[in-house]
Design a protein around this nucleic acid. Structure first.
Lengths: 113, 113
DNA sequence: TTGACATGTGACCAATTGGTCACCTATTGT
DNA sequence: ACAATAGGTGACCAATTGGTCACATGTCAA
């Protein structure tokens, strides 16, 4: 929940396979490791262990939360970190284009350098 | 400009040093390699070549655009890829919550529960 | 209990990445 | 032309990451 979590989230998102898994969990939550393995196998060929490792990265970044049910481990997408990422970082780059132009204009009006 | 550029952008953003450089260019555009080197050196100790390499990654992702002026190479932040990233990917994960909040707000406004 | 199923763990290898260095090119000022 | 400045290139090493495997754990059902 601290600031450096940004790094975990960014790094977790930096892999196409992991984004694919997030997409799958976005479409339908509560999928087990086996189910995710099948989905991933449809796009790339990766063993169960590879999928499991990627999931662990996503869990560490708090992008995926887990509920154990019997011998299954059900995965759910947690959109909060992405939301935080957007609010604290991405918004800064996407929103203030207009504002930046305003500042530039003011600067130009004050000291014509 | 194609879809797989997402990967380049995500990977470029997955490094704290590179995000630091984007911040620096966000604060003030048109900085040279030397200037960026000094800024980065203030946080981590990295040689000019390291900074140059990171800049090349950012350029490949089209996050930084370059204008040559004499023997200097001036760098500018290009917010477009981040914007695209947000529109095509992040929005999908963050938007429904906003809608949910809006719905909640409306409910609260209607029947003060 | 016994076996089949769903997943976890630690060792291990290959591929990628982060970073530095010794050289090189191009531009500026004198 | 010359030296100083700003930056680029390819080789190279260390650290990290992606992926697999043999094995272990825990759970359900008969």
């Amino acid at each position: 929940m601290c600031v450096t979590d940004h790094d975990l989230v960014f790094k977790a998102l930096a892999d196409g396979t992991r984004r694919l898994m997030l997409d799958a969990l976005h479409e339908q939550g509560g999928q087990s490791l086996g189910a995710l393995e099948e989905i991933v196998a449809g796009h790339t060929d990766m063993s169960r262990f590879g999928v499991s490792k990627h999931l662990k990265v996503l869990e560490a970044a708090d992008l995926v939360i887990v509920r154990k049910q019997g011998r299954q481990k059900l995965h759910y997408l947690n959109p909060v970190p992405i939301r935080v990422l957007y609010d604290r970082w991405i918004d800064k780059y996407t929103e203030p284009q207009v504002r930046a132009l305003t500042v530039l204009k003011q600067k130009a009006e004050n000291h014509h350098e």
